[in-house]
């Protein structure tokens, strides 16, 4: 019997597979397909203090090996998330979840993080400083090491639960941002969020996405994500959740070999709602095939 359990800042997960924020809502749509209790955890939809409608349509475009989205953090706001969405999720999911927090000012992040920190169901706070689809805040907090560090400190000062900073790949050197977050007290790093991209409708001669550009995700970005996880894992000593283009158990093994402790599966959930279930079922088989008894054996082994 292989051991798929992993530990993230004191939280033990049955397996390292976590649906990424924004691709899994608050779980109920996927519970129509399978029992979501098999998941290691769930990173729930990005939450802001106030409700957000998000960007104008179209918000979606297809690409070779992936997609572009510019949803723009549509969410019902932290109050509705705590009073309605999380209690509803608790009925169908009995493990701790990862709250994903966003805002357009430091005050927003602090307010939202404090409220979600107080929810018993929340095991980890993931601070989204990498959303490319909002005009104020989002990615602008994650492209400068000093700004990222300040925000990390501000959030850490008001919460008790582990804080993971979710980083953007749209920077010159992601390891600099990761190191700044670590020095400021972050408990872990999630990377990567989507890459800025666009498509043009050549018949209409205009961008497909109403917001012109959006966030590119899907299997095509896996090598980019893997490279960034690998470099960041060498640069910091805190745990990493590896995100970006994962769609198979073999991808999960690669991410862990690059240095990730757990992984998040994003866009693949949208094209195949059974992706996480399939990965969780295949993971022990792949581990056996490769002679891996425990995932901790291979973490960061690729050197």
């Amino acid at each position: 019997m292989v051991n798929t359990k992993v530990e993230l800042s004191g939280l033990t997960l049955d397996n390292p597979v976590i649906p990424a924020s924004g691709t899994f809502g608050f779980g109920k749509e996927f519970a129509e397909f399978y029992d979501i209790n098999i998941l290691g955890s769930i990173a729930v939809k990005g939450t802001t203090p106030e409700p957000r409608y998000g960007n104008e349509l179209p918000r979606i475009a297809e690409c070779a090996g992936g997609m572009i989205n510019s949803v723009g953090l549509q969410n019902p706001g932290m109050k509705a998330v705590c009073e309605k969405e999380l209690p509803e999720l608790a009925k169908i999911y009995n493990k701790k979840v990862i709250a994903n927090i966003c805002g357009s000012s430091e005050e927003d992040y602090v307010k939202c993080a404090s409220m979600l920190d107080a929810q018993e169901q929340v095991g980890i706070l993931e601070i989204n400083i990498s959303c490319p689809n909002v005009k104020c805040g989002g990615m602008s907090f994650g492209t400068d090491p000093n700004t990222a560090a300040e925000l990390t400190k501000a959030v850490k000062a008001v919460v008790r639960k582990p804080v993971y900073m979710k980083l953007s790949p749209n920077v010159t050197d992601i390891t600099e941002i990761a190191k700044a977050c670590e020095a400021a007290g972050a408990d872990g790093i999630s990377l990567i969020n989507t890459l800025v991209g666009m498509r043009i409708d050549i018949k209409r001669r205009s961008p497909v996405i109403a917001n012109e550009t959006g966030g590119f995700s899907g299997p095509a970005i896996f090598p980019v994500a893997l490279g960034m996880v690998y470099r960041t894992a060498k640069a910091v000593d805190i745990p990493i959740m590896g995100i970006g283009g994962i769609s198979s158990a073999r991808d999960v093994i690669e991410m862990i070999m690059a240095g990730a402790t757990a992984v998040q599966v994003g866009a693949a959930n949208l094209s195949d709602p059974f992706t996480c279930k399939r990965i969780i079922e295949e993971l022990p088989e792949v581990m056996e095939e490769l002679g891996i008894e425990d995932l901790s054996e291979i973490r960061g082994c690729a050197k």
Binding site: G22, G25, K45, G54, P58, R59, I60, Q74, V208, P273
Partner: peptide, 27 residues
């Protein structure tokens, strides 16, 4: 009609405004 991401209500890629709040075209 709408350009959809998932088609089953998870991604909020096709939300529209209605008199009763935001609705997902797909779901």
């Amino acid at each position: 009609e709408s350009r959809m991401g998932c088609g089953f209500g998870a991604c909020m890629g096709c939300s529209c405004r209605t008199k009763y709040g935001s609705k997902r075209i797909c779901k």
